[in-house]
Write a protein that binds this DNA or RNA. Structure first.
Length: 912
DNA sequence: TCTGCGCATGGAT
DNA sequence: AATCCATGCGCAG
């Protein structure tokens, strides 16, 4: 192993020094020694190219009208730097994800106006190279126009930030530019040839001359102590719970003061990276910290196999190079990690069937052409040999691969849902090896139900649903295979006393880091978070348990948090315009300010009130006063007569009460306004209406007894939150937009299907009708000529179509939306539907004096009287009842039922 | 009646 | 939009 350029098989022989995650689950790494950048294959590499124009800046921006908001959920985002490093978090190479709505946005990009196709840092040379047929996928430093990069990135001279510069499908290899041929990495099989450069800013990077044919760069002023904050800023906001980079030595807890931390906690996609690396001993200068042997846990694409390129990252084995080397050495053979899978409940259940990821099965297991498959011998390192039936089920023109008979093995390994099984191959020989990684908390949770997982390996691992998920293991131990006791021992089969290995792999892989990090407080916090997250494993529906109330609560907290963020004091921003948006640009991050109350005096003047942190007295301040998080009377420079805690409070207790009330009202109003805004962005009428429902509820103080509690419908079971149950007996209840009750989900789903079908059918019908129209016209012509049959019989198609469409649209709004909350008691809503139906039918009547339609219209009139449309259909219509109409009838019947329930309830109430 | 095979379904990606 | 795959479920033994 080894070469003069230090790159073997697509990876350098040096220690990895820095890494950052890809949204798709891969992991890109930079060796600071040789500058080689490798990116583990990402199977959705194309999505990364969406970020090709992104450039990171290291300043803080806010729009002049306030901090920038998320493009999607419209929540205000503090900072709003061009990469919104605040509440947004970096994803991959420039995508940013809103912590709140978890959507990734491409906004805030600085574009290369000369050639939008290229990242700003590329020169024409590079563009030319890329266009060239000989372009080998590498980009050389000589092609990086630093001046332009610096200019566009507005890199502060003093900054030690690292700028990531994304060039799609390029490898950027720093060199002196004199020799562009020499450093040809041989890519690992399966590598996409896509890489990136991490280019420290001008202060910290020196391109050096080529040494031994090896491109090098040196890092200056990049000692850990001062590198950390800037890395936090620029590489994926890795610190996790800080939204703004911390300055050296700053304590995030101190900054957040706990109070506003929730909104700034990692979003589902955040991935703290660097602190882990630093913590676990990786330094920026290429050397491993004394005594540390740990490496980041990297999900890496397996070395070979059929169709490996399609393997989802979640199945990539996460084993460190170190572990792998040791394992291989100990086994005196090459261990090739193939894939791993987090056991689902059914995998670990009694059925004894382990569903194999299709791609993995096809890539690494023998090809089977018959459903019965074949027996597969799999060894664990202990030497036990298991025989599973490897087979498949036909499924949707595809296959579902399963290993049958895994129960004994699973039991022997004491695995549970949430644990991870790993499949490897021993070379030479190609023997399959099964290993596992227990979820770290599985020992405590063994009797718990549902089963849990942790260790950063969730079923959603590939999406990095949580900060630690994608992490190079938080404990840096227990990876490939960890002791079931959770003590950090690394096992291939979970048995530390493995006779086969002796003291080998298992013993060797035990790292002292395990103990170190297990006692780490941050680690514990993450562990707690993980534990929290792991509760989500199991029933999918359980993941939806975060109620709308919680969401609303979060939103409020969030908005409150916005109030606390202030531009850095006594710093004048420069004004920049980015994509027609005017921003204030700050070198320093916003700070958390003290919460104050705004009110209006009797004369109508706006006032601001703040509470002293020492004496708790309220002091009046100018409206534009910005306070630090801690503020006391002594800092009251605006009113010297009240600049001491001994000064009496200006407000009487009654006035104070009023002030609080005013503040509360203001808050409520703001909720209403915000909700209205949100409502405008809601995609469906259902959600909009439901939002109103939520709003309505939120406008009512729960402590206010006059609010009128919603009573569950008597016909439903306690705890049921279906659409009927959430209605009061009066029927005037509304459904929440994201309600996931059975009724709602079913109706939503079916409505969606209905609409899809309807659309499809309509287009088919139109095409069909066009064809038949010709036919009919022809026929009519013939009949006219021959004095033939009635037109009623001549046009059954129109008749059917007319009825279908009309009835389908009952229960929908005109915008094609369904309103689950339409008040069944309100006659006008029924009448509206009916009127609509009639109107349409009339139109059709006008267009086509069809006898059949007249009949239908009569029926509709009857329907109006009886509020029943579908049952009126005659036999012929029933024959043609489409699914659409069935659904429509379901909806209508439901409304009808509700109406009856409500009428019955009301009459009962009246009687009582 | 119980078990488990084989397929279908639908949520998630 | 298509596909995957976790799990539900019918049916046969």
């Amino acid at each position: 192993m080894g070469s003069d350029i230090g790159i073997v098989n697509g990876s350098c022989v040096h220690e990895w020094k820095r890494g950052w995650p890809l949204r798709s689950g891969g992991f890109a790494q930079l060796c600071f020694k040789c500058g080689f950048v490798e990116e583990w294959k990402c199977d959705i590499i194309d999505s990364l190219s969406a970020y090709e124009n992104s450039v990171f800046c290291n300043k803080f921006h806010r729009q002049q009208t306030g901090w920038r908001e998320c493009n999607f959920c419209k929540k205000p985002i503090h900072c709003g730097c061009v990469v919104s490093r605040s509440l947004f978090e970096y994803l991959d190479f420039g995508g940013i994800g809103c912590v709140s709505c978890v959507k990734t946005s491409q906004h805030n990009m600085i574009r290369n106006t000369e050639n939008p196709k290229w990242p700003v840092s590329l020169t024409q040379n590079h563009a030319r190279d890329m266009s060239s047929a000989h372009f080998d996928g590498r980009l050389f430093a000589s092609n990086v126009d630093e001046g332009k990069l610096m200019q566009l990135c507005r890199v502060v001279e003093a900054s030690e930030s690292i700028h990531m510069n994304h060039a799609p499908r390029d490898n950027i290899i720093t060199s002196n530019g004199k020799n562009n041929q020499e450093v040809k990495p041989s890519f690992r099989e399966g590598d996409t040839g896509f890489s990136n450069v991490i280019k420290p800013s001008i202060q910290s990077l020196t391109f050096s001359t080529l040494e031994n044919n090896r491109p090098t760069w040196e890092m200056k002023n990049m000692h850990e102590s001062n590198a950390k904050p800037s890395l936090n800023m620029c590489l994926g906001n890795p610190s996790g719970n800080n939204s703004f980079p911390l300055s050296a030595g700053e304590n995030i807890e101190g900054r957040l003061e706990g109070k506003v931390s929730p909104p700034f906690h990692q979003g589902p996609r955040s991935r703290p990276i660097l602190p882990k690396l630093l913590k676990t001993g990786l330094t920026m200068n290429g050397e491993t910290e004394k005594g540390s042997t740990s490496q980041p846990r990297i999900a890496r694409p397996p070395g070979d196999g059929r169709g490996k390129n399609q393997l989802l990252p979640r199945y990539w084995p996460r084993i460190t190079d170190q572990e792998l080397e040791r394992l291989s050495g100990d086994l005196k053979s090459t261990v090739v990690p193939l894939f791993e899978k987090v056991l689902s409940a059914s995998d670990a259940g009694r059925i004894g069937r382990l569903v194999l990821p299709k791609a993995c099965a096809e890539a690494y297991f023998p090809h089977i052409s018959h459903s019965e498959g074949l027996p597969l011998r799999v060894q664990d390192v202990k030497g036990n040999e298991w025989t599973f039936q490897f087979r498949f089920w036909p499924n949707n023109n595809s296959r579902m691969y399963v290993l049958e008979g895994v129960t004994p093995c699973i039991q022997a390994m004491e695995l549970r849902a949430g644990d991870t099984v790993t499949f490897s191959r021993i070379d030479p020989g190609g023997k399959l090896v099964i290993g596992f990684r227990k979820s770290s908390n599985s020992t405590d949770m063994q009797d718990a139900s549902p089963p849990s997982h942790s260790n950063g390996l969730s079923a959603k691992g590939a999406t990095f649903s949580g900060g630690a998920d994608n992490l190079p293991s938080r404990s840096n131990c227990g990876d490939f295979l960890r002791s079931p006791k959770g003590n950090g021992e690394l096992l291939l089969n979970g048995h530390p006393e493995s006779p086969h290995l002796g003291t080998g792999a298992a013993g060797l892989l035990k790292t002292e880091n395990c103990e170190m990090t297990n006692n780490n407080s941050l680690d514990q916090k993450i562990s707690a978070l993980e534990k929290k997250r792991t509760r989500n494993i199991g029933l999918k529906s359980k993941r939806l348990l975060i109620g709308n109330d919680d969401a609303m609560e979060l939103r409020l907290t969030w908005e409150e948090a916005q109030d606390l963020l202030r531009p850095p004091p006594s710093v004048k921003p420069s004004i920049v315009t980015i994509e027609d948006q005017v921003f204030e640009e700050y070198d320093e991050p916003p700070v958390f300010g003290k919460r104050t109350i705004f009110s209006a005096s009797s004369s109508g003047m706006k006032e601001q009130w703040a509470q002293c942190d020492d004496c708790s007295k309220w002091r009046k301040l100018p409206v534009d006063a910005l306070l630090p998080p801690k503020w006391t009377c002594s800092e009251n420079v605006w009113d010297t007569s009240r600049s001491s805690c001994s000064a009496p409070e200006e407000l009487s207790s009654r006035e104070l009460e009023n002030l609080m009330k005013t503040s509360k009202d203001f808050k409520k109003r703001r909720i209403v306004e915000n909700s209205k805004l949100i409502q405008e962005h809601e995609p469906s009428g259902l959600d909009a209406l439901a939002s109103l429902a939520v709003l309505g509820e939120n406008l009512i103080d729960p402590t206010d007894s006059s609010a009128g509690a919603t009573t569950k419908h008597p016909r439903h079971r306690p705890g049921c939150s279906c659409i009927v149950c959430i209605q009061p007996p009066s029927g005037k209840g509304r459904h929440k937009p994201t309600c996931t009750c059975n009724v709602c989900t079913t109706v939503k789903r079916r409505f969606k299907t209905l609409m899809l079908r309807k659309k499809k059918r309509q287009s088919e019908r139109e095409a069909d009708a066009a064809a038949k129209k010709d036919q009919i016209r022809k026929k009519d012509d013939d009949l006219n000529t021959n004095g033939g049959a009635s037109r009623d019989d001549a046009n059954p198609l129109e008749k059917e179509g007319g009825l279908n469409r009309s009835q389908t649209e009952v229960g929908e709004s005109s915008a094609g939306k369904i309103d689950l909350n339409s008040d069944p008691n309100r006659e006008d809503s029924q009448l509206d539907n009916i009127a609509k139906l009639r109107r349409e039918l009339s139109e059709r009547m006008n267009m086509n004096q069809n006898v059949g339609l007249r009949t239908i219209n009569t029926e509709v009139q009857e329907g109006q009287q009886h509020s029943s449309l579908v049952t009126q259909s005659n036999g012929e219509d029933k024959r043609h009842l489409s699914d659409d109409r069935s659904i429509a009838s379901i909806i209508l019947n439901k409304e009808r039922r509700d109406e009856v329930y409500n009428q019955s309830n009301e009459s009962q109430n009246n009687m009582s």
